[in-house]
Design a protein around this nucleic acid. Sequence first.
DNA 1: GTCCGTGCAAATGCTTTGCAGCTCT
DNA 2: AGAGCTGCAAAGCATTTGCACGGAC
Lengths: 128, 128
Amino acid sequence: MPRPSSVRDAVADLLRRGGRHAWSIEELHQELVASGRPADPSSVFRAVSYLHDRGLVARVMVDGKARYEVAGAHHDHVRCEGCGALAPLPGCALERLEPEVTAGTGFSITGHQLIFSGRCPDCREDGG
Amino acid sequence: MPRPSSVRDAVADLLRRGGRHAWSIEELHQELVASGRPADPSSVFRAVSYLHDRGLVARVMVDGKARYEVAGAHHDHVRCEGCGALAPLPGCALERLEPEVTAGTGFSITGHQLIFSGRCPDCREDGG
DNA sequence: GTCCGTGCAAATGCTTTGCAGCTCT
DNA sequence: AGAGCTGCAAAGCATTTGCACGGAC
C-alpha cells in the first residue's frame, strides 16, 4: 500500500488545482520550491510517471518536451508560437473522425494528439 | 549563391523520393550511408534545418523526436503504438476548424499538428 | 582569398535510472 | 525488519553548436 508521499501529493495537488494547463517537470518543480515544498526534479518526474501509469495524469508532448495535466475530459490545445503559452480547447471535434481514420488507414484508432499553433492575444499585439 | 552540396542534395533527394512518410535524422543518415553517400549525422541535421528554414521541408514532432518530410500539401498522420509506423492521412478536415479555434481562444491560428495513435493492421493481428 | 559545406567532437537540454539513506508501516 | 519514497548523481538520447579543414567561386 502506498505510503504518504509528500512530493507525489504535492504534484497531484498542483495538477488538480490547475493554475496552468499543462505543466512541465521543471515548472512543477519550481512551483513546489516556491511554495515551500522543495523537491528534487527527479522525484517530480517519478511522481508524474506514477500518476501517469495509473491513468490519473495525461502526458502531452509539446515541441519535444513533456507536459502533464490531470486526465479529465479529453481536450486539445493551442500553442502560441510567440511565447509558448499553451491554452486548452473547450471541446474535441475529432473523436467523431476516428472511425473515418480507421476506415481510411486500417489502423484501429485509440486516441490522438492535436496541437494548434498560432499567436496568443498578447503576442498578436507584439508582433503585429 | 549556394554551392553544390552533396549532403544537402542527397537529403533533399531522399525526402522528395518519399520512400517513407517522415524521416528521422538517423534514418536519413543510415539511408545515405547505405546508398553509398556517407554523410555525418550533423550534416544531415544541417541539411534538413536548411531546407526547413526555406520552407521546403516540414518538421513533425513524433513522440518527442523530430521527423522531416517534403513540405507539400498539408496532411496529418497516424502513428502505430505497436511498431511506431507513421502513416499519412489523405486529407485534412481540420483547417476548417481553425476559425472556430480563433474565435474560441483569441489566438490567431497559423497551423496545427495532429497525430492519431492506434495500431496498424500488422500490430492489430499481433496484439489481438 | 574568401566563403560555404563538411566531418569530427563536444555541449546542451531533458528524460530516465542507480544507489544509498530515511521514513513509515 | 521490510517496503516505499526521496535526494543526489550520473547515464542516455537526440538535438544542436564550435572548430578547423577543404573545395568552390
